[in-house]
Amino acid sequence: MTTVPAASATDQTPATGASAGSAPPRTPEKSRRNKSRPRTPTEWILMVLAVLGALVIFFPILLLLLNAFKSPADYATSTPLELPEALDFTGIQTFWEQNNFLRALWNSVFISTMVAVIAVVISVLNSFAIGIGRVRGRTWIVLVFLMANLVPQEMLFDPLFQLYDDLGLLSNSWSVIITFVVIQSAFGTYLLSSLLGTFPKEILEAAAVDGASRWRSLRSIIVPVIRPTLSVLMVFFFIWTWNEFLLPLAFLNTEDSLTVPLVLEQLNGERQTDTTTLIAGTLISIIPTIIFFLIFQRTLTRGITAGAVK
């Protein structure tokens, strides 16, 4: 780290991560020189290796695409790598009819959206007191919140199961929402506290001179300034919550409370499930995530690097 110029320590701003992979700008003269040098055979080999690696990663999903549209008879007689004889939607149809997938989709969207919004609000409130208020013992307070992120979920599930049972919240989306608001806001509190610790104080002083209260400064000045980071956090909270498995599995037990991963897990556990139905269901369960990925790809790459290293 000693050799890194001081500027790099601050290039945590979302702008840098946004185009991770694009090289920093060069002078025209240099890039011309670089381009004029022909690509060596070694470079070609290394490039091909990188492409092959990506193909290996994509291969299971490719197999899924190839087989999800086969009729059961076609699936039984062909090998997995063959194209389907004709586009057949039997598997998809059966999956759709046997499972209330729209309901699960709605449950997942509702839970993840609620968690994303509420967890960001809680993170902002916590980090306002820590980063701007610099209350006593703030390092410890951050640690207390981070416990939520460290604790294994199997430590939580039995006590919380009883709690939600007493409250009548079992098989209710709110059991999962409340739990993951706490778990996700741990990371949000940590990240925003260090971000707000570097908030330019001139702005806040100017606002105070103009008579703005703390609450007003938070709402009208701080939140608008850090909005890009808040949207990154929201995207991440959404997708993390969407993918959660253990606690939703424990809390959500009725047919119409299941989330997308739970529906697929249940289908996978049933012995009489037809293979083509299962493959079709897997594909359908992946589609929302892929759409989400395509929309938020830049936000995601920016987000995982935000807060990784300061």
Binding site: A20, G21, G53, A54, I57, F58, P60, I61, L64, I239, W242, N243, F245, V260, P261, L262, L264, E265, L267, N268, L278, G281, T282, S285, I286, T289, I290, F292, F293, Q297, L300, T301
Partner: peptide, 18 residues
């Protein structure tokens, strides 16, 4: 890079079924 990252965003349960 996006291709390598793709499995990270799939629900693990779904990846497991796959």
């Amino acid at each position: 890079r996006a291709t390598y990252y793709l499995p990270q965003i799939l629900p693990i349960a779904v990846a497991g079924v796959l």
